[in-house]
Design a protein around this nucleic acid. Structure first.
Lengths: 181, 181
DNA sequence: TGTAGCATGTAAGCCGTTACATGATTGA
DNA sequence: TCAATCATGTAACGGCTTACATGCTACA
């Protein structure tokens, strides 16, 4: 029976497929950087310590191979996905339930209590959210630009576009709500 | 010092403000129903057992008052927010960090690996997501209709509209991606 | 020479879920 | 009378974070 991993585990495995190269693999540290750049926009970016934990688990299932690099004084580990890992990912893609997205939206949550905040404070909250949104959008735009229109990354590019569309939708919702106050 | 609660705790407190009436309050079971109807669209709907746990915690801080109803054979507890609870909620609204929304999007996550799935399977995945989306939208529409345009629930109505806009944005993104395959 | 970034881990603890256990009430 | 719904909880455990601990490497 296929051991069932958390979605985050599969997400990390996905990063190893996409960014891990053919053989070299990535260190836990590098994996964290990739997660911060991309995964965070439509999943989460796990804490460093969590990444190492998941890497251990993936390793114990032989879904990744850990190559120790001892050229320097300190040994660093590079993790690469194994054939078994690819298989596990495949079967996850094919057979698992496709859960509905979960949106945890603290701004919307607070907006629900707008009558306890007052219009001014609501406006201030929306303003600061819009600012944060613009900043995030810029980061994702940079990622999108790096992807370009290469065939090899057509799917990641679509995901990035999805994220950009989400941000745009948020921005226009903010505008509409502000007008309604 | 104000004890810091989890966001979910504040969310439940919010439901007690909005749906809890002046004095009667809600049972844990009723709270779960409200959460399933509204909270779930922009936060989460906690498990029953978790709601009881949070209610105990809120009770221990005197943010809610538990009134035992012993008219039947079994005592049921109705929870109502206290003045101290309102204050805690206020200070949470005013002083806390306004965190950025988190979107956990398993469909987008899988789409990233579209090249491992093949166009047909990607299409099937998008189709089934669209179906689920339509169903969710209908549920939220029903909530929105119940709110109507009463002043008292103008803010919850805005939040519901926000959710509907999100669903619409998702639907049009799906269309765009399908066309690009 | 010092500091920012690279790199790896352990421990404690919170948040939240599922599984389990129990029983009352309502209506077909 | 049987099933669905109302109603309340405990126990075990998974996932993930923060805090802590350690040390190398490059470069200004």
């Amino acid at each position: 029976m296929a051991p069932s991993l958390s979605t985050t585990s599969y997400a990390l495995l996905s990063l190893l497929v996409i960014d891990g190269g053919t053989d070299e693999g990535l260190t836990g540290y590098e994996l964290k950087q990739r997660a911060d750049r991309t995964l965070r926009f439509y999943w989460v970016s796990p804490a460093m310590s969590h990444i190492y934990t998941e890497l251990d688990r993936l390793s114990s299932h032989a879904f990744v191979r850990a190559d120790e690099d001892t050229t320097g004084k300190r040994t660093t580990k590079h993790f690469a996905i194994t054939p078994a890992g690819r298989e596990a990912l495949q079967s996850w893609l094919h057979t698992s339930e496709h859960e509905f997205p979960v949106l945890k939206h603290p701004i919307a949550l607070r907006l629900m209590l707008g009558s306890m905040m007052g219009a001014d404070e609501v406006r201030a909250m929306l303003d600061s959210y819009e600012e944060a949104l613009v900043a995030r959008r810029r980061e994702l735009e940079a990622v999108r630009e790096m992807l370009g229109d290469r065939d090899a990354v057509a799917y990641p590019a679509r995901v990035a576009d999805w994220g950009l569309a989400f941000f745009d939708s948020e921005a226009s919702t903010i505008d509409r709500i502000r007008d309604s106050l």
